[in-house]
Nucleic acid binder design. Sequence first.
DNA 1: GATCTTATGTCAGCCTTGTTGACTTTCCAA
DNA 2: TTGGAAAGTCAACAAGGCTGACATAAGATC
Lengths: 162, 162
Amino acid sequence: MAQKSGESLLYLTDEQLRKGIEAMFFAYRGFTADPDRILEEHGYGRAHHRAIHFIHRAPGTTVNNLLAILGVTKQSLNRVLRALVEDGLVEARVGQRDKRERHLYLTEAGEALEQKLSDAQRERMRAAYRAAGPAAVAGFRQVLEAMMDPEMRRHFNRLTER
Amino acid sequence: MAQKSGESLLYLTDEQLRKGIEAMFFAYRGFTADPDRILEEHGYGRAHHRAIHFIHRAPGTTVNNLLAILGVTKQSLNRVLRALVEDGLVEARVGQRDKRERHLYLTEAGEALEQKLSDAQRERMRAAYRAAGPAAVAGFRQVLEAMMDPEMRRHFNRLTER
DNA sequence: GATCTTATGTCAGCCTTGTTGACTTTCCAA
DNA sequence: TTGGAAAGTCAACAAGGCTGACATAAGATC
């Protein structure tokens, strides 16, 4: 009640929050729909997409780092990586300084698929951004960032600062 | 280039779109983290949460309607519903007019769990909303809505209009 | 040099949650 | 009365999570 005068607090009602929750649910479905279709053609799933995305984003990343970003077990990731390496989309190079580490890179074929997937996903994103306008997009990003767990926010911010 | 003068189009660059994609990924993890923990204690998964959420939101909904909202097969939903009915969280009443239909309701125990789950999820949502402010929240909602498939947007809007 | 720790990989087995296909029961509506 | 829609059920399968146990290589430490 202290600052009820300045800005209305109606946007914090349970009803508004519930709407936000449902919006996240339905929007996430749209968010993954296009890549899902492409992945199916190639016999892959979302797990492969995530690996491909972050290897593209941070080339030379180690398995352990990828594990931390994705938040899955090494057994789970390994199954996915093995398939991608066998299919020639990902290359795992032994580390220079530390030979225990594997540094991950997309091959040409891997980059090609990444392009196809992210083109589709960016296309929808671009349409949504354009429809909503720059101010809305700034708000969108603010809320999403505030919604993350601190550790995930750390990963999120590290991805672009380098 | 036509309207480059008025508002900058820099928010539509591939880099910005990619950041938005990653924000969605990390934020969705936070979005589901709290309910996931609670569900685990009860031996349920996200599929149960979704069913409980939408039955609470639209009491008396039919199985077919729920199917359309959730976008899964009836076999998949049925498995989840059966567990919830057996555990006494959901009641499936035979339709009055059309006795083939089952109308779904949460029992008292079901409502209790729904409360617990949505309290946790709203809590995070509220914190994010508060941190970002009302203008950001409006933008957040605009972008999410623009990101949905048209059919999902229909469901989304129908949920509050009644 | 021996030992501890870390990074990675792998095997086996389990669970949830999605899928398809086939079939039955119920029952509204033409 | 009969066709078809709504719902339920059974079986089988796959993706992608998980745990636990174990192997190997190599950096780090004593």
